[in-house]
């Protein structure tokens, strides 16, 4: 029963199209694209957790950790994007691994809030640390890529290419992972932990693994974001509202498909850009209002609309 995985095909087509488009895109589009990829990757981790029945209100912790880790390494004189992003990802994953031992014991709202508490500690540390620029943060110099040091617009073009390749690989990896036994156990743990234990596997281990995965990808997103906007600061990297935005993207996208996450991230980024452009004082109003609208009228996110449309197309006409 070999069949073609449509998601893999779709992702690959989108990847190649964007790869090509990178060289023609307007600067502002590339900027929005970069941020969407960064935030979308974080939401990918939340999707994995969400499928396990867990929502984190604190993934800005890993996002901020990855961003600040990468940014601090530039202060030490490291500028290679490969190294910075790899380090940011890894160090966030390490933190998730350590905190995971505590967090895997919690479910539901406790899990969500404990994550928030930990993220607020990071926020507090950053705000209190003068060396890290306190509330102003500090700026991050343009990265190099294995010795290649682009200048001007080429920096963003190269960074976009770099981000695109890694995001593609990560997304593909997460998609395939969800089809494995461990990936599928998300469902099992969400539905019935008692049964999972009595089938012979530890629900906590499942959760821990997924938590580390979500920490890694959030760290990746953070490191990319630091390089993309050339700056880190606590309010846009580590505050609890940042965590709220990730949850927003996840619920907007729905948890049906990994590709939806990036569509959701892009929509979010567009709303955000235009809200800040035309009605900055209503940003929270718009964000909250759309979130309410999705919850009330589109409970399964954007993806459910797409799959409903597809079904309607396929259905035989009466």
């Amino acid at each position: 029963m070999r069949h073609i995985d449509k998601t893999v095909v779709g992702l690959t087509i989108a990847f190649l199209a964007l790869l090509f488009a990178d060289f023609f895109m307007a600067e502002w589009m590339r900027f929005i694209g970069l941020q969407s990829l960064a935030r979308g990757t974080v939401a990918l981790g939340l999707l994995v957790l969400w499928r396990t029945g867990l929502v984190s209100f604190g993934h800005a912790l890993y996002f901020g950790f990855g961003a600040y880790a990468a940014a601090m390494l530039t202060l030490l004189g490291y500028h290679d994007a490969f190294f910075l992003v790899f380090a940011g990802t890894l160090i966030a994953g390490l933190l998730a691994f350590l905190l995971g031992f505590l967090l895997r014991r919690y479910r539901a709202i406790f899990f969500a809030l404990l994550n928030m508490a930990f993220s607020m500690i990071l926020y507090g540390v950053i705000v209190k640390t003068e060396a890290l620029g306190s509330t102003d943060g500090f700026s991050v110099l343009a990265p190099t890529f294995l010795g290649y040091a682009p200048e001007g617009e080429a920096v963003q073009t190269t960074l976009f290419l770099f981000t695109l390749v890694f995001t593609y690989l990560i997304t593909l990896g997460v998609h395939l992972y969800l089809k494995t036994t461990l990936g599928g156990m998300s469902m099992a743990v969400r539905e019935n932990e008692i049964r999972v234990e009595y089938l012979g596997y530890s629900a906590e281990k499942v959760i821990h693994f997924k938590y580390v995965l979500s920490g890694l990808v959030a760290g990746f997103g953070g490191a990319i974001m630091a390089l993309a906007i050339g700056q880190v600061d606590p309010d846009s990297m580590a505050n609890w509202t940042v965590s709220g935005e990730f949850v927003f993207i996840t619920i907007l996208s729905g948890i049906g498909n990994v590709a939806a996450t990036f569509v959701g991230a892009l929509v979010f980024e567009l709303i955000r850009t235009y809200a800040f452009e035309y009605a900055p004082q209503f940003w929270q109003f718009i964000l909250g209002g759309s979130l309410l609208a999705i919850i009330m009228f589109l409970p399964d996110g954007i993806w459910s609309v797409l799959s409903r449309l597809r079904k309607a197309e396929k259905a035989p006409s009466p």
């Binding site: 494995t180 036994t181 461990l182 599928g184 156990m185 469902m187 099992a188 539905e191 019935n192 089938l199």
Partner: peptide, 28 residues
């Protein structure tokens, strides 16, 4: 697993029984 099909319930039961270690990362 209440929201899953009977087949998927048992598929998961078999997979957990049969896989350990890296095998958990092979397709369900």
């Amino acid at each position: 697993f209440m929201s899953e099909s009977v087949f998927d319930n048992l598929l998961m039961a078999y997979a957990i029984a049969e896989e350990t270690g890296m095998g958990l990362l092979s397709p369900l």
